[in-house]
Design a binder for these strands. Structure first.
Length: 506
RNA sequence: GCCGCGUUGGUCAAGGGGUUAAGACGCCUCCCUUUCACGGAGGAAUCACGGGUUCGAAUCCCGUACGUGGUACCA
């Protein structure tokens, strides 16, 4: 049997962390078993349709390198892959369920439902369900009779189709992560299967499409666990439990307090979505990992480890290694709190790990996007190698490398002034002279010359290094000063020293 | 309220009857470096609580507490 997994998002907004991890686990499982990974767009709620959301999801998957084998863009033999385009299919199955006596028509308006909930509400039961307790008191084919039901339907009265949950049945299934999970049917409600607009709800659509698309393993977030009994029943009624995919309900990714929300991101200053997303309706902006400066490799690596490990102490994995080593039975059961500090660490590790040429390309993109004009690649490559261990995000390269390309606009003179004196000023005057006379220009010689001159003048070389650094960099950071001098060249080095001396004189 | 799922340091977590209870992030101390980092050496856990079972329990069982998800003609 071919292994087929699917990711089935609804195109209603940004793709968040947990969503990407669900994609990842689906993808890894499919890949390692030589199977297929499918993207299916669950756009059955027309009131929540958000233009651009589907394209955005594609962009995110692309960026992450988790491309589906089948989907709305890619195509495939089991299309269409947008549920809105499969509307007619679901109706047929809804009718089949009615014919089998396990579903029924219901005419209750939203207002009538609201009234029912209010009428039956008690302290012990604050949210009454449409279930066996109340269904015989409502307007549905169960108590209206066939004739009346047909009459209403012919008259064009709006109706939904609801599943008729059995009275006393224990519904069990085996979850790949949680093991055996069971529910009493008596606490499950008669979920709507087909809405008044003719569209299916998620419950009908997942089951039908998983069957039709031959999905062998269905992985989704744990928030779906409570509706699993409805899906199990539907499988039993429609296609047989033996055809049902293996379920795995993935642990939730939590924020600082409770389920991770995009609000947490804004509140605590970390991205929550894979890529930047602006809601076209509300104009609400949410930052993405990509734009924040994350490498997709690091993002994926971090997500993989949030809820899974291979049992060793290895934490840095390439996608290929993950495909090789991932296993569902090592997925942790409990929800995991997202730790932004650790996420940044993964990024830093990946910056160090990446092939220099590859890194250089990405740094170039980041730098040019911030308006920096880059000379030749070889120069940038050297700069990148020199500063990379000081960068945790791709976006850090700008601050860390800017002085290699531009004369600093401000200098942290406060850090040198307290210990500044005319002897030191004299030293730099002479150093300029010495530098001007150099024909060879390399960090080693520059340093030797610097130290010799300092000794000559009876000043500790160390005391001069910080001022020199601030002259060249503008602040107290960066790689060895003499390497910086070597990189920016004689002319620029001398210019920067002169600049600083003027400022220190004033 | 009801139902489901979960609970090993601040966080991610290994370990699934006998261990000094791994490792990583973060934090703190120190070394390296007269910058910032990298790197290196250290420091910090009564395994949620209470009962069992057992010679022995973080590990098995039962309760309780807490957390979390669901309880829509949303997914």
């Amino acid at each position: 049997m071919e292994i087929r997994t699917r990711f089935a998002p609804s195109p209603t907004g940004g793709l968040h962390l947990g969503g990407v991890r669900t994609v990842l686990y689906n993808y890894l499982f499919a890949r390692q078993n030589g199977g297929k990974f499918i993207l299916r767009i669950e756009d059955t709620d027309q009131t929540r349709f958000v233009p651009g959301a589907e394209a955005y999801i594609n962009d995110c998957l692309n960026w992450c390198g988790l491309k589906p084998d089948e989907g709305p863009e890619t195509g495939g033999h089991y299309g269409p892959y947008r549920q809105s385009a499969r509307k007619d299919i679901y109706k047929k199955f809804a009718e089949e369920l009615i014919a089998k006596g396990v579903a029924y028509y219901a005419f209750d308006s939203p207002e009538a439902l609201e009234k029912m909930r209010n009428a039956f509400k008690t302290t012990e039961n604050p949210s009454p369900q449409y279930d066996r307790q109340v269904r015989m008191k409502m307007q549905n084919s169960l108590n209206l009779g066939e004739a009346e039901t047909q009459k209403r339907i012919s008259a064009g009265e709006a109706y939904v189709v609801r599943i008729k949950i059995p009275d006393d049945e224990t519904i069990r299934f085996n979850d790949m992560i949680h093991g055996e999970v069971s529910f009493e049917s008596s606490v499950v409600d008669d979920k709507v299967l087909l809405k008044a607009d003719g569209m299916p709800t998620y419950h009908l659509a997942v089951v039908v499409d998983d069957y039709l698309m031959k999905v062998s393993h269905a992985f989704r977030g744990e928030e779906w666990l409570s509706s699993a009994p409805v899906h199990i029943l539907l499988w039993k009624y429609l296609f047989g439990l033996d055809k049902m995919p293996q379920w795995a309900h993935l642990p939730l990714i939590l924020g600082p307090n409770g389920k991770l929300s995009k609000r947490d991101g804004a509140k605590y200053g970390f991205p929550v979505f894979a890529m930047n997303w602006t809601d076209p309706k509300t104009n609400d902006f949410t930052e993405g990992f990509k734009e924040k400066g994350f490498l997709p490799e690091a993002f994926i690596n971090m997500l993989a480890m949030l809820g899974w490990n291979d049992g060793t102490t290895q934490e840095i994995f390439t996608l290929d290694e993950l495909i090789d080593k991932f296993s569902m039975d090592r997925v942790h059961r409990a929800g995991a709190k997202f730790d932004y500090e650790k996420a940044k660490w993964f990024n830093q590790e990946w910056i160090k790990k990446l092939d220099p040429d590859d890194l250089c390309k990405r740094v170039a993109m980041s730098l040019t996007s911030k308006g920096l004009n880059l000379p030749d690649v070889n120069y940038l490559k050297k700069v990148t190698e020199l500063v990379k261990e000081r960068c945790t995000l791709l976006s850090d390269f700008y601050d860390q490398a800017l002085y290699f390309f531009k004369t600093p606009e401000t200098l942290d003179l406060e850090s040198i002034k307290p210990k500044w004196n005319s002897e030191k000023a004299g030293f730099f005057d002479d150093y300029i002279q010495w530098l001007s006379a150099q024909t060879a220009w390399n960090s080693q010689d520059l340093e030797t010359g610097f130290k010799n001159l300092a000794i000559q003048k009876n000043i500790k070389p160390g005391e001069l290094q910080l001022p020199f650094r601030i002259m060249l960099v503008g602040a107290k950071f960066g790689p060895a000063v003499f390497q910086i001098a070597e990189m920016i060249g004689a002319e620029e080095t001398i210019k920067r020293i002169k600049n600083a001396l003027i400022l220190l004189h004033a």
